[in-house]
Design a protein around this nucleic acid. Structure first.
Length: 655
DNA sequence: GTACGACCACTTTTT
DNA sequence: GTGGTCGTAC
C-alpha cells in the first residue's frame, strides 16, 4: 500500500477529496459531526507525506487554545513529530509569537504585557475617570467595544475618521486617551495583538516576504469565526501561498464579537479557491436529529447551502416537553436524567444546554435535590480570580514597573495606609508630567509634596517592590515570596473564613502553576514575562475539575462538543431567540444557527422543552413557545405527556 | 478601612 | 434573584 492510500483509508469521498486536494486554495464546508478535525489533520499528513512538504512550511491556525492543543495532540499521534516543531496555534497566540520575535520592528517595548478583557475594562474606566465623564452616560462596556471595533477595523486613533458630533468626538477622545495610557504602560489588548501583527508585516515587506516564503501552506479551522483583522492578516500572508480553510457557515455564532460570515464569501472572491468541498455526511447523530437540524436551518436565507445526512437509522423522535413553569421544566429534566442516564453511559455523557447562564440556577437546584452529580461550565476561571489577579499584578509590576494598571491594583492592597488622597496626588502628578504612576511616585518622594504619613507609606511600598525586584529567585520562589512579603497571605489568614481558606488554597495553587510552567518552559523570552503572558493568553479552564456529572452549559460553550443525550431547554420567544438578539441586524439568523448548534450536539436522543412561565430578572413572566419549535418538520417532534399527578407536584410548588 | 444598605441593570465569551 | 457599585456611617 502506498503512502497516499494509507492516508485516505477510512475516509468518505468528500473527505478524500478535501484531504488530497491539489496544492491550491481550498474551501471545505464541514457540517456538524462530519469529521472536520480529522480532515484537517489528514490534510497536513498528506502535505507532508505525499506532497513532500516540510512540516516547517505549515501553519495551522485555530480560534481557541483547546482546539490548538487537540490539533497538536492528534498531529503528534499521526505524524510522530515533536509538537514544538509545528506552528499550530490561535490567531492571537501566533500574533503574539511574531510580536515577541520582532518587538523592535513592531515598535513595542521588549517586556510588553497583555491585557485581558477585565483589565481592558478597568483601563476604560480609568480613562473615564481621567476625563471626568459619567459612566452612566458613557457605559464602559460600550466604550470598550467601540475601541475593539476600531481596532478590528484596522484603525488606531490617528486613523479614525470622525464626524463632528459630540458623541463620536468624545469616543475618539476616549480612544486616544486609552491608547496612550496603554502605550505608556507597555500594554496590548487582544485586538492590539492582531492589529500590531498585521502592521508589522504590512510595514516591513522583507519580513513579510520571509514568512510568506516559509509558510507555503496555511490551514485555518472554524473559518466562519474569522474577524476582519484576522482576515486581512491572512490575506497579507497568503498572497503566494495556499490556504486550506475549513468552516461551517451554519455554525457561525460569534457575530456579536466581530466574527463575520461575509468572510467566507469574501474568501471565495479574493482567493478563488480551486475547490469547494462540502462534508455533509454526519457520523454523530440519528436521522431524526438531523431532520430537525436541517429543517430548522433551512429557514435561514444567508447560507451557502448544505444538508446533513447519515447512514445511521432514524432513531427515536425528538421529545418536546411543555412545562408549566421553569421549576417544572427543571424537575422534568432532572427526573428524566435520573431515569435514563445509565442508558446513555452515565451522567457525564448527558448535557443540559441553555441560552443564558441565569437558567442554570433552577436546573442546579433540581439536580441537587435528587443528588444527581453535575458540572456547570462558565464562570470565573482560575487566573481571573481576584486573589490571583492581585498576585499577578505584583508580578507584573516586577516585570515592568510602569504598568499603571498593575500599580493601581496593588498599591493599597492589602491595605497599607495609602489612601485615596495619596493615590490621587500620584495620579495628578503622573497626568501632569505624562509619566507612569511609578515614576510619579519616585518624583513625589523626592520633592516632599506629600504629608509625612503618606510619604512614609508610599516609600514603604516602593521599597517593597524594589526589594522584590532585586531578588534572584526561580519563578515559583518569586511567586511564593511575593504572596508572603506583600502581605497577601497574612491578609487572608487574618480573616479566617471559608472563602479566605479557598483564596489561600488558590494562591498556593498559583505557586504550583509557576513551578510547572518553568519546568516545561523552553523558549527564549524571559520566564516571568512568558508566564504572565500565559496566564492571559492561555488562561485555563474554570475550576471544579474532577466532578463527573451531568454537563450544564450555554449553547455557545457547547459548540464542538457532543453528547449521547441532550436537553435543550428554555425554548421560548424572547429567551431563545433572545430579545436583545432580535433587535440586532441578522440577529434572528444567528439565534437560529445557535439552535442548530444545540440540536446537532445530540448523538442519540434530544429533548426540547419550554416553560409557559418563568422567573426572569426577579419577575414572573409568561411567554410563548419559541418560533424555532414550529420550524422543526412535522413528524420529528413528539410531545411528552406526563400523568396529571406528576404535573400537580410542580404546579403546587410555585403558585 | 470596613461594613452595610440603597440602587440598578441584566446575552452569549474567547483571545 | 443576583451581583456590582456607590455613598454613608462607624
Amino acid at each position: 500500500m502506498s503512502n497516499s492510500d494509507f492516508l485516505l483509508q477510512n475516509l468518505n469521498i468528500a473527505q478524500r477529496q478535501a484531504v488530497s486536494a491539489p496544492l491550491a486554495h481550498t474551501l471545505v464546508l464541514a457540517g456538524a459531526g462530519s469529521g472536520k478535525t480529522r480532515v484537517l489533520i489528514q490534510r497536513m499528513a498528506w502535505l507532508i507525506h505525499t506532497e513532500r512538504q516540510s512540516p516547517f512550511q505549515l501553519l495551522a491556525v485555530t480560534f481557541t487554545n483547546k482546539a490548538a492543543k487537540e490539533m497538536q495532540r492528534r498531529l503528534q499521534q499521526v505524524l510522530n513529530i515533536k509538537p514544538q516543531a509545528l506552528w499550530v496555534g490561535t490567531f492571537h497566540g501566533i500574533a503574539h509569537r511574531l510580536l515577541r520575535r520582532h518587538y523592535a520592528q513592531a515598535h513595542l517595548p521588549a517586556g510588553f504585557q497583555i491585557l485581558d478583557n477585565q483589565e481592558q475594562y478597568n483601563m476604560v474606566r480609568r480613562v473615564l475617570k481621567h476625563t471626568n465623564l459619567d459612566e452612566k452616560e458613557w457605559p464602559p462596556r460600550q466604550v470598550q467595544s467601540h475601541i475593539n471595533q476600531q481596532k478590528e477595523g484596522g484603525f488606531y486613533p490617528e486613523q479614525v475618521e470622525t464626524g463632528n458630533g459630540y458623541h463620536s468626538q468624545t469616543l475618539l477622545k476616549l480612544y486616544h486617551h486609552y491608547h496612550s495610557l496603554c502605550q505608556q504602560s507597555g500594554l496590548l489588548d487582544f485586538a492590539d495583538l492582531l492589529l500590531r501583527a498585521y502592521l508589522l508585516w504590512r510595514d516591513n515587506p522583507e519580513l513579510l516576504a520571509q514568512y510568506q516564503q516559509r509558510f507555503a501552506h496555511v490551514l485555518v479551522d472554524e473559518f466562519q469565526d474569522i474577524n476582519p483583522m484576522q482576515y486581512r492578516w491572512l490575506k497579507l500572508l497568503a498572497q503566494h501561498n495556499r490556504v486550506f480553510a475549513v468552516g461551517d457557515d451554519d455554525q457561525s455564532i460569534y457575530g456579536w464579537r466581530g466574527a463575520d460570515l461575509a468572510h467566507i464569501h469574501r474568501f471565495q472572491q479574493d482567493f478563488q479557491p480551486n475547490q469547494l468541498v462540502k462534508l455533509e455526511q454526519n457520523y454523530r447523530s440519528t436521522g431524526m436529529i438531523l431532520a430537525a437540524a436541517n429543517g430548522l436551518i433551512a429557514q435561514n436565507r444567508q447560507r451557502l447551502g448544505k444538508n446533513l445526512w447519515t447512514q445511521a437509522g432514524e432513531g427515536a423522535p425528538i421529545y418536546l416537553y411543555q412545562a408549566y413553569n421553569d421549576l417544572d421544566e427543571a424537575g422534568f429534566i432532572a427526573d428524566k436524567l435520573q431515569a435514563c442516564a445509565t442508558q446513555y453511559g452515565g451522567y457525564q455523557h448527558c448535557a443540559v444546554l441553555y441560552r443564558v447562564n441565569a437558567q442554570s440556577r433552577v436546573l442546579e437546584e433540581a439536580l441537587l435535590k435528587r443528588n444527581i452529580p453535575y458540572r456547570i461550565y462558565g464562570g470565573l476561571r482560575f487566573y481571573e480570580r481576584a486573589e490571583i489577579k492581585d498576585a499577578l499584578a505584583y508580578l507584573r509590576l516586577l516585570a515592568h514597573v510602569d504598568d499603571d494598571l498593575a500599580y493601581e491594583r496593588v498599591v493599597n492592597f492589602p491595605p497599607r495606609g495609602i489612601g485615596k488622597t495619596t493615590v490621587e496626588t500620584v495620579r495628578a502628578h503622573a497626568r501632569r508630567h505624562g509619566c507612569s504612576l511609578w515614576q510619579a511616585t519616585t518624583a513625589l518622594l523626592g520633592n516632599a509634596g506629600l504629608s509625612a504619613r503618606a510619604g512614609q507609606a508610599l516609600a514603604k511600598f516602593q521599597q517593597l517592590i524594589q526589594n522584590l525586584k532585586q531578588r534572584d529567585l526561580t519563578l515559583d520562589e518569586l511567586a511564593q515570596t511575593v504572596i508572603e512579603q506583600t502581605g497577601l497571605i497574612a491578609y487572608y489568614q487574618k480573616k479566617r473564613g471559608e472563602k479566605e481558606e479557598m483564596r489561600l488554597e488558590n494562591l498556593a495553587e498559583l505557586v504550583r502553576a509557576c513551578h510547572q510552567f518553568s519546568a516545561q518552559y523552553e523558549e527564549d523570552l524571559p520566564l516571568l514575562s512568558a508566564f504572565l503572558t500565559h496566564t492571559v493568553l492561555e488562561a485555563g479552564e474554570a475550576g471544579q475539575g474532577t466532578v463527573q456529572g451531568v454537563q450544564l452549559m450555554t449553547l455557545h460553550i457547547a459548540k464542538g462538543l457532543e453528547f449521547p443525550l441532550v436537553f435543550l431547554c428554555g425554548l421560548e420567544e424572547n429567551l431563545f431567540p433572545h430579545q436583545l438578539a432580535l433587535a440586532e441586524l441578522n440577529g434572528l439568523e444567528e439565534e437560529r444557527r445557535l439552535c442548530y448548534v444545540g440540536i446537532t450536539r445530540a448523538m442519540r436522543q434530544l429533548y426540547l422543552s419550554y416553560a409557559q412561565a418563568r422567573c426572569l430578572h426577579g419577575m414572573e413572566s409568561h411567554s410563548r413557545p419559541s418560533r424555532f419549535i414550529s420550524e422543526i418538520p412535522i413528524g420529528v417532534l413528539e410531545p411528552v405527556h406526563l400523568s396529571s399527578a406528576h404535573q400537580t407536584v410542580y404546579r403546587n410548588h410555585n403558585p
